[in-house]
Amino acid sequence: MSDEPNHPRTPWRDHWAALPAMAPAGAVTRTPDRTVRRIAPSPLEPGATRDPYRTYRVLREEFPLTRDPLLGAWVLSRYADVASALTDARFTHGHRPGDPPCAQTHTDVDEAELRAVAERTAFVLAHRIADRPQADLVADFCHWLPAGTVAAAVGVPYRDMMRLVRGRAASALAGQCTGQIAVREKALAGFLAAVLTDPDQVAALRDAPAGLVARAWTESLRRDPPVQIVMRRTRGEVRTSAGVLPAGAQVALLIGAAGRDPDRFREPDRFDPLRADPGQLTYGTGLCPAVELAALEAEYALRALFQAMPRLRLADGFRPEWTGVITRAPRSLLVRPAG
């Protein structure tokens, strides 16, 4: 069959091959018969990193199945399609919870010990910055907590943790799952930024039970996931809500677009831990120690920061800005520990 998918909802599909190869993504162009046609925008086009959600919106509504030459892949952006592809065996995958390496790591992890280590590390780091007039939670807290938790769990001295517990060394020490540090850093930074940006959330979560903190964490991963795009390849033809993907096709799953799909979530741009339609994309059917550890770090991070700094707030005039295309998080999070 042709590698052009069946795309009944997008009238421009028949003209894709006729469009100029170098036309900027998202632009308007004309076919030889002078008919105006639009080109699907790309998450990789210049400027998209500042607000990828605008691009995601256009893709969901007008180009839910399209070929992106910059990504070199077909693109899926609707929640239903992305959620299905993440667990569908017809798509190849990298890491997926429940796979043998992940399952093996999970059997080696003592959850009670991991919880105690995450709590202790968070409180130590929070008290280190409590007396400062200003601090950057990304550099001074989020950058250290995931590495410090792994270091403490495997018995690496505190002074050596950043030298040993990163990259390949982390995986060797703590297993393939819990050794992945960078994504947990970004997820934690995004979570704290979402909470601290809204004074109402600060008040609600300051002494909140673990269940409410967990809902806030899940909501953060939905609205601003640290991993925005994941790549897969089809093993055979796959039908989606917008058409058919050919066998052997490289496919980009837009996690960031799926999490803000209005067909799945009401007011999807709002950060609302109490929303009536909660949800989080899952990458598999099994348990993943990295996912569990990240949730523990988020819970104890919030508790430690509020306990050490009861009047914690954002620095005057500061608003966090998320950056990145494939992975995305605030680069800095300036706060006044004493309020």
Rank of each mutant, 00 (worst) to 15 (best):
138 V>W: 03
55 T>W: 05
219 E>M: 04
292 E>V: 02
316 D>A: 15
65 L>G: 03
265 F>G: 06
51 D>G: 00
311 R>E: 06
204 A>G: 11
132 R>E: 11
304 A>V: 01
43 P>C: 00
255 I>H: 02
336 R>A: 13
169 A>T: 10
106 H>Y: 10
262 P>G: 11
21 A>H: 04
263 D>R: 14
12 W>P: 00
234 T>Q: 03
38 R>W: 10
337 P>S: 11
309 M>C: 15
2 S>T: 14
163 R>L: 12
177 C>M: 02
5 P>H: 13
56 Y>W: 14
241 S>A: 13
265 F>E: 08
42 S>R: 08
208 A>N: 10
279 G>I: 05
3 D>N: 14
27 A>E: 05
81 D>Y: 05
232 R>P: 00
323 T>K: 09
262 P>Y: 08
154 V>S: 10
279 G>C: 12
244 V>Y: 01
280 Q>A: 11
57 R>D: 14
304 A>E: 06
228 Q>T: 10
134 Q>R: 14
8 P>M: 13
81 D>T: 04
40 A>E: 06
305 L>K: 11
100 P>Q: 03
205 L>Y: 03
83 A>E: 12
217 W>R: 05
101 P>W: 00
94 G>W: 02
38 R>I: 04
142 C>S: 11
147 A>M: 12
187 A>C: 09
173 L>Q: 03
95 H>G: 11
304 A>G: 07
115 R>Q: 10
84 S>T: 13
254 L>P: 08
31 T>C: 03
274 L>T: 12
152 A>M: 04
250 Q>L: 07
290 A>L: 07
256 G>E: 13
264 R>M: 05
178 T>M: 15
38 R>L: 15
123 F>I: 01
14 D>P: 00
152 A>L: 06
82 V>P: 01
38 R>Y: 14
290 A>W: 00
228 Q>S: 12
22 M>P: 02
155 G>A: 04
108 D>E: 12
71 L>Q: 09
207 D>P: 00
80 A>C: 03
285 T>I: 01
204 A>Q: 13
235 R>W: 08
199 P>A: 11
334 L>A: 07
51 D>P: 05
309 M>A: 08
22 M>D: 15
43 P>R: 04
255 I>F: 07
320 P>C: 09
34 R>P: 00
278 P>W: 07
324 G>E: 11
39 I>N: 03
189 A>D: 02
275 R>G: 08
